[in-house]
Design a protein around this nucleic acid. Structure first.
Lengths: 332, 332
DNA sequence: CACCCTCATGGAAACGATTCCATCATGGAT
DNA sequence: ATCCATGATGGAATCGTTTCCATGAGGGTG
C-alpha cells in the first residue's frame, strides 16, 4: 500500500518526457542496440530529471530470471562462514549484484527448502556450502541454474564447479608437525561431514607409521554444545592423548574450553592445533597454533566463478598454511 | 539461457490440466476468494502432478513489490552483527521470507547505494544498522518502504521503529563497577558513531564525581587495524590509565591484544571490560568481563517488527547484562 | 537515377502472476 | 412462480521491462 499517491516513475514516463518511444529509452539506458547521440542525450536528460530507476521487477519477469546471487551457508555465526560470506558480498557488491542469503544449519531438509525458495524467486546463480548429498540439488540443476559449491565438495557432483580447501595437505601438515614433536596419540575432533579430513587424517598417520586409534576420532554436530560435549568426552575418556587436532574453529574453541575446565594445561599436558585461523587465536594463552584457511578468498573466488558463468570451470583448490604459535609442544 | 528446452510450468499449464480458468487456479492456490471443494481438489491434484511452483517474478510484478526483507549491516565478519543477522534470518526463514543482505562497511555512501539497490528491487521491508545520518533514508521513506533500525537510533528519525540496546544503563553499570573497584582514570575506546555511549560514559563519570579526561576517550573506525591503532595509542600515550572500557568486541579484541603486546598485565596493570559477550571472552586469560548484549534477539525482534508492518510500533530497548569474569581488579 | 544496405526508431508482444468484473447457476424468501 | 442474494467461475486487464519486427530515412555505389 503506497502511502502517498506517488506512482513509481516508469520507462513510459521517461519516454513521454523525452518524446521518444519506450523501446528507445530501454535501448539507451541498457546500452544495447544503437541510438543517435541526440536521442541518447534527450533520454539521459529526461531520466535524470525524473530521477528514473528501472524496476528490477519488470526486467526480471521479461528476462525470466532474477539477477543476483543466492548464498547458502550452514551458520552465519561461525566466523569461518562469516568471512566466506564477506568474500562473496565483496565480489557481488562490486559487480552490483544483490545477494540472497540463507542458513541451513547443516540440515539437508532446510537446505532443500531454501533451494526451493531460490527456485521460486528464479535466482539463477547460487553459491552453497552443501550439507546434504547431491540429491537435493537435482531440481536446481534441472531448472538450469548455475551452482558453485564452497568449502566442501559433494559426492556424485564432481562436475559442479567448487572452491575448496586443500584438506589433505592441511591435515597432513598438521599431523606431521605434531608427529615431529613426538606425539603419537593424536586425536581428531571432527564435525559430521568432514569425511575428507578424517580420511586425510588416517592416511597421514598411516604414512608416518603411527597406528590409527579409532577412539581418538570423535564427531560432533555443528553446534557449540555438541562440540563441547565431544571435546570434553574425548579428554575424559582418553586422558592419555597428547595432542588434539580440531577440524574447525568451533571445535577448536570447544577444545580450548574443555582443556581449561578439565585442567589440561596447554601445551604441557596436551598440544592443540585447530583448523581455521581466527582473530581470537592470538588472544588465548598460549596463542593457538592453527591451520589457516583463506575463507574470505574462498567466498570471493566462488562469487567470481558463479558470475562468469560462461566458461566451464573446474574446481579450485585453495592452499592452507600452518601458523605456529604457542599451543603445541613436545610430547610430555 | 535455459539449457534444456523445458519451459517452466506456469499457472496456465495447471489451468489447462485441471480444466479450469487461470483465475480459479490462482484463487485456489493462494487461498483467496471462494471455490468449490471439487474444483479445489482438481486444481491441487493438477498442481501436484505437474510439480507446479508459482513464480515469484510474476507475483511480484503484479503486486508491485518484492517479498522478503532487506538487511543492511556494517560488517558480517563482526560476530555481533553476525549474531544479529542470525536473529533476522531465523525469524525470516520461519516466516518463509527471503533475505537480501548487504554490508555497508559503516560507509554512508555504500549505505546509500545499497538503499538504491533495494529500491530498484522493490524490496519493501528493510532492517538496517544505519551508519549515515537520516539523510540517506529520504528516498526509502518516500518510496513507502517500512524500515526498522537496529542497534543504533538515527538522529532526526526518532519516529522510525528501532531495536536498540540500553546503552545508558550498560555504560553506567560498567563505569560504576570499575569505579567501585577504585578506578578513576578510566578510558573509553569507542567506535565512531557511538556518540550515545560516549555521552553516557561522560554522564556516568560525572554522576560519580570523577573528572572527565577527554584524552581518555579515543575513537577508532570499524576496522580491526584502526581499533588496534587506537588501543595501542591509548596505552602508549596514557600509561597512567588503570581501566579501559571497550565499546564493542572488535575494540575489546584490540585492547586485549595491545595490552598483551605492550606488556600491560590484566587485571593487575589494567582492568578491561568490553561491550558484547563473545565466545572467546571465556577463552582469554584472564577471561573477559563483559557487558553482554542480546544481539541475536535484537535481530529477531527487528524482523518481527518489520514483518508486522501493520501496527505502529515504537522503538524497543533491550537490556544489557554485566557478566563478571576475571579481567577487572582493584586499582593498582 | 535506381537500388540496396545500414542505422535509428517506435509499436506491440511477451513474461507469469493477481484481480477486477461480468456471467451464470443455485437456492431461499416472498 | 418470481425475484434477489450469494457463490463459483473464466476472460481480460494489468504490472514494467525487454526485444522482435516493421518502417522510414539517408547515403553510398552501380
Amino acid at each position: 500500500m503506497r502511502v502517498n499517491g506517488q506512482r513509481r516513475t516508469t520507462i513510459k514516463d521517461v519516454a513521454e518526457a523525452a518524446e521518444v518511444g519506450v523501446a528507445t529509452v530501454s535501448r539507451v539506458l541498457s546500452g544495447t542496440g544503437s541510438s543517435s547521440p541526440a536521442t541518447r542525450e534527450k533520454v539521459m536528460a529526461a531520466a535524470a530529471r525524473l530521477d528514473y530507476r528501472p524496476s528490477a521487477l519488470g526486467r526480471n519477469l521479461r528476462r525470466q530470471r532474477t539477477g543476483g546471487i543466492g548464498l547458502l551457508i550452514p551458520d552465519i555465526t561461525d566466523t569461518f562462514y562469516g568471512r566466506l560470506a564477506d568474500g562473496v558480498l565483496t565480489c557481488a557488491q562490486s559487480a552490483g549484484e544483490p545477494v540472497m542469503i540463507g542458513t541451513t544449519g547443516d540440515d539437508p531438509e532446510r537446505e532443500a527448502e531454501l533451494i526451493g525458495s531460490l527456485l521460486e524467486e528464479s535466482v539463477e546463480r547460487v553459491i552453497a556450502v552443501p550439507c546434504g548429498d547431491g540429491e537435493m540439488w537435482g531440481p536446481a540443476f534441472r531448472a538450469g541454474l548455475s551452482v558453485v559449491f564452497a568449502e566442501r565438495p559433494v559426492q556424485g557432483r564432481e562436475n559442479v564447479p567448487s572452491v575448496v580447501t586443500d584438506d589433505r595437505t592441511g591435515v597432513r601438515t598438521a599431523v606431521e608437525y605434531l608427529a615431529g614433536l613426538g606425539h603419537r596419540r593424536i586425536a581428531f575432533l571432527a564435525r559430521h561431514g568432514q569425511a575428507q579430513r578424517v580420511r586425510a587424517f588416517r592416511e597421514s598417520l598411516a604414512a608416518l607409521r603411527v597406528p590409527v586409534d579409532d577412539e581418538l576420532i570423535v564427531y560432533a554436530h555443528a553446534s557449540r554444545d555438541s562440540a563441547y560435549a565431544a571435546a570434553a568426552g574425548l579428554f575424559q575418556h582418553r586422558p592419555d592423548l597428547t595432542a588434539v587436532l580440531a577440524g574447525g574453529n568451533i571445535l577448536g574453541e570447544a577444545a580450548v574450553l574443555a582443556a581449561k575446565e578439565l585442567d589440561f594445561r596447554v601445551p604441557r599436558d596436551v598440544s592443540l592445533i585447530m583448523f581455521d585461523d581466527v582473530p581470537w587465536a592470538e588472544l588465548c594463552s598460549p596463542p593457538l597454533t592453527v591451520i589457516s584457511q583463506p575463507a574470505q578468498d574462498m567466498g570471493y573466488r566462488a562469487a567470481e566463478l558463479v558470475l562468469r558463468e560462461g566458461r566451464r570451470s573446474r574446481t579450485v583448490m585453495l592452499p592452507t598454511e600452518l601458523i605456529v604459535r604457542g599451543s603445541c609442544g613436545p610430547r610430555r
